[in-house]
Design a protein around this nucleic acid. Structure first.
Lengths: 147, 147
DNA sequence: TTATGTGCAAAGAGTTTGCCAGCTA
DNA sequence: TAGCTGGCAAACTCTTTGCACATAA
């Protein structure tokens, strides 16, 4: 069965190799925001004939084809997620590293407005909130709070 | 004459060497958001007995002492600015690379509110707007619009 | 068949660090 | 003087790339 991303690749006329298919599958199935090494590990688990160079080349290809979005959450390596039609921002749980997506329309409006006021047209933006679980909500600290 | 940063170092009891003094001076006088290499070049112009390793060590020292803030504007290298009491965000002119600081209280309020609603306490955040000069406002393109 | 993709290892960019000489306090 | 600091070059991490071979279309 084709993964979502594989289907998009086909639509865009990208040549599909086994490696790309595996990487597409891994990315389609990843709900988190994996870095290249994580993608590589997941891909290698499915098919060991994949090198990390290919993962780098493929995520770049997918990024350029607008299939993936590249993020940088400040830990020095790129992280990827599948491009979605709905825009969202990220809240990073600094205790667990978990990334939570959120959308807030007031923020969206404000971003545009601020750029305009400064005499600019907004092209892209990045809002990341780095936060700790609220003490009140999280008496038992370390569990995995998922979005 | 002591630079602003040198004074802070003295207050914090940091051992002051000629190199640190020069780097402190360069940073105090930098109104932009220089990367390490730029700091190094400016420092070396004042005193050639400075190595880039020292610049790296010193900016880290200053960062840990809360004298500098480290930013990452997505170009793969760290950029620094003196810590100020007033929080601000950044708009990056993608045409010139220039960084414009701005503050918007509505945004600040919203950030807190969003984190709270998700069950988190905001620790840090990052808002960057990547934008082009508005065509209408900017017939002559490249001048220096400072905040 | 032919343009393109892949693996491997080497190269790059940015940053950190071990070691010893040098300097601050 | 004691111990922290700086210069140099080597090392590290993440990412890109040259080359020869393999493969999709």
């Amino acid at each position: 069965m084709q993964s979502r991303i594989e289907r998009i690749c086909a639509d865009k006329g990208l040549k599909m190799t086994d490696q790309r298919r595996i990487i597409a599958q891994v990315l389609s199935e990843s709900a988190d925001h994996p870095d290249v090494d994580k993608v590589y590990q997941r891909a290698a688990a499915l098919d060991s004939r994949i090198s990390i160079a290919t993962v780098y080349r493929t995520v770049r290809l997918f990024e350029e084809a607008n299939i993936l979005e590249k993020h940088d959450f400040g830990d020095g390596r790129a992280r990827y997620e599948e491009t979605t039609s709905d825009h969202h921002d990220h809240l990073i749980n600094i205790k667990t590293g978990e990334v939570i997506e959120f959308y807030n329309s007031d923020i969206e409006v404000l971003k545009e407005k601020i750029a305009k006021e400064l005499g600019y047209d907004l092209v892209d933006h990045r809002l990341e909130l780095y936060a700790m679980p609220s003490a009140a909500d999280d008496p038992a600290d370390d569990e995995d709070v998922s979005s």
